[in-house]
Design a protein around this nucleic acid. Structure first.
Lengths: 351, 351
DNA sequence: TTGAAAGCGCTAACAC
DNA sequence: GTGTTAGCGCTTTCAA
């Protein structure tokens, strides 16, 4: 069934030229001069034979970049889906394919993927997810990263990590500061924070931003744990019900969505009795009720910037620049936040 | 900066063996016997040198599958994100990388991607999105697909298409039938359907299912156009306000979400005044209010099945089986649906 | 402007 | 068990 594919040799033979000429005629970025008539003849034969150069062979001869890989914690998480959209867009623009590795939030799977990428000598590897605060994990990831850099590849982080890599990251801390200031400015004094996974740097940075503002404002926040999922947000709210809280800052939008749902079930009105603020601004937030106030992280743009950064490194530019380029974030005010009402604190407590 | 990478020759030399022996010792799936001591020695040298076989060279010698590509209309659409999750999971399980191509719903971009995949001789290409009803598009896509099959690749559809390819598709029609029967069974007689993009086969199949049931039940549905997005759902509802509709069937969940939002804005209670049913069962539907009743499409499973199908084809099994394997769907009853109330029709009309 | 020939790094006959 | 050798399909000196 599977017929042998035409090789350059076939084209050359049928066009009555040497392989060299055929190669030069067909290869657009060959500077070598070729007679126009010959080129046309070769092209015609190639077209007739449906000749396609074998990328492995070509790559063997002139190794160059062809793919960029992006590692995400979960491709079905809207945050990562957006980042990946940015990556694929920028990559395809540069004529590259994008390999997406969804680790399902399992460090073992992530490590297996990195090993795979390394073996395949993928030239650009982007880590979309935050790194774990685990020594063993960090050591392993770092070993792989070093190997990738050793073969001339570029490793770029799109979220905060302990590893010192070139990075394009959101200004998590500033976003948290903006959210907290906004809530404090609204007049809230009884606030709660739903944290993200503790071992994730992204959570830590956001948490630090919230806490800095609250400390300065003399506000003592209630801190409840979360895990960046809707179910986690629900559970967190369940735990804080009965507490006189008038505002809740969630470390990401999914968590805020879960919180919103649980408040509704508990009969607590948002934003009348309690304000809720998310983080990320994933798509679709304006279609839920109440529309969620949140911190906008330019997810797709971060993905695109990551590709650009990797390409620059591969081009030899900015190889030494291991710093993180911080992408600005902004507060998006919608309908899940309001000033606390005089009697509100009691109302929340009532539940 | 970029040091020359160690090649098999280096390992062989330093281990004091021939390249063949080194190759056999290092290659796990070589059946050729190798002395255990030699193997250990070679392995040790390889480890010390951090030797990594060059995939291009290996691939040149023994072309075999290494990647599966999946084309989606929009990676940020939860439906596709889920399908891709299924694909990456199954692929990584089989030791393959997954290339994700997000076409941004632009046929031109899709075509460019396919061309790219074809040139790279990617062995497995999965089309996650439905095909367009456009002759020119179909011709071009088919040409590419034929070329891919010609070089021994597998092309699999994960959604209905005009092109006759092996496929793993959801039972769209049956899902629509189930949804419509359910709504009719609840007692609704004034129903509306929010269609999907007309040129997409997926929309057509779902629409056909709804219509078949309504025709049988003697119900004359109001049909409003949509585009599979939340904004489209909103616009559709805006157009049907003032109509005595008691139930709305949306061709996908995103549309239903937009509809829900618009009904809320208009002050129409769901499900008291109007019932809403979605399609797909994207993640998170149980966290919105009211939780959306919908048709569950096993998205991730379809992705995984697609990979399995492609692998089977590449193994020479079922090459001739161009039929679509239909994946069953089921109705998930949640809180956006209820029996129509006696006075409800007027209430809806009031708006 | 063209052609001959030398590899890129690896695997698989085919000897030994 | 191990080594020798011939390519896989392509690009690119080096000569002509």
């Amino acid at each position: 069934m599977k017929a042998a594919l035409p090789a350059l040799a076939d084209v050359a033979r049928q066009a009555g030229v040497s392989m060299s000429t055929a190669s030069r005629a067909l290869n657009p970025d060959s500077t070598h001069p070729v007679n126009e008539a010959t080129r046309a003849r070769v092209a015609a034969v190639a077209a007739r034979l449906e000749y396609q150069p074998n990328p492995s062979a070509r790559n063997l001869r002139m190794p160059r970049l062809s793919t960029v890989a992006v590692l995400v914690h979960d491709i079905a998480d809207p945050y990562f889906a957006e980042v990946v959209r940015g990556v694929t867009g920028a990559a395809s623009h540069a004529g590259l394919m994008t390999v997406v590795c969804s680790t399902e939030r399992d460090p073992a799977i992530e490590l297996r993927y990195i090993d795979m990428l390394r073996r395949s000598r993928v030239p650009a590897v982007l880590f979309a997810g935050g790194g774990l605060e685990d020594a063993e994990y960090q050591r392993e990831v770092n070993d792989h990263a070093r190997a990738i850099v050793a073969y001339g590849g570029a490793v770029v982080a799109l979220a905060p990590r302990a590893e010192r890599w070139p990075a394009e990251v959101p200004d998590n801390r500033d976003g948290a500061v903006k959210a907290a200031r906004y809530v404090v400015g609204l007049g809230h004094r009884k606030v709660a924070i739903i944290a993200g996974p503790k071992h994730l740097r992204t959570s830590q940075e956001r948490m630090a931003g919230y806490l800095a503002v609250f400390k300065e404002a003399g506000v003592e926040p209630l801190i409840v744990s979360g895990d960046f999922t809707q179910a986690g947000g629900q559970a967190a709210v369940r735990r804080m019900l009965g507490t006189p809280v008038t505002a809740v800052l969630a470390c990401n939008d999914l968590t805020a969505l879960g919180a919103l749902d649980e408040f509704r079930r508990a009969g607590v009105a948002v934003p009348e009795e309690v304000s809720v603020v998310g983080f990320d601004d994933i798509p679709g937030l304006e279609y839920i009720h109440p529309a969620l106030t949140t911190v906008r992280v330019p997810m797709a743009q971060i993905g695109a910037a990551g590709v650009a950064r990797a390409l620059a490194i591969l081009d030899g530019k900015g190889t030494s620049d291991r710093r993180a380029h911080v992408q600005p974030v902004s507060l998006i005010e919608r309908n899940s936040t309001a000033r606390p009402r005089a009697r509100t604190q009691r109302a929340a407590a009532r539940v």
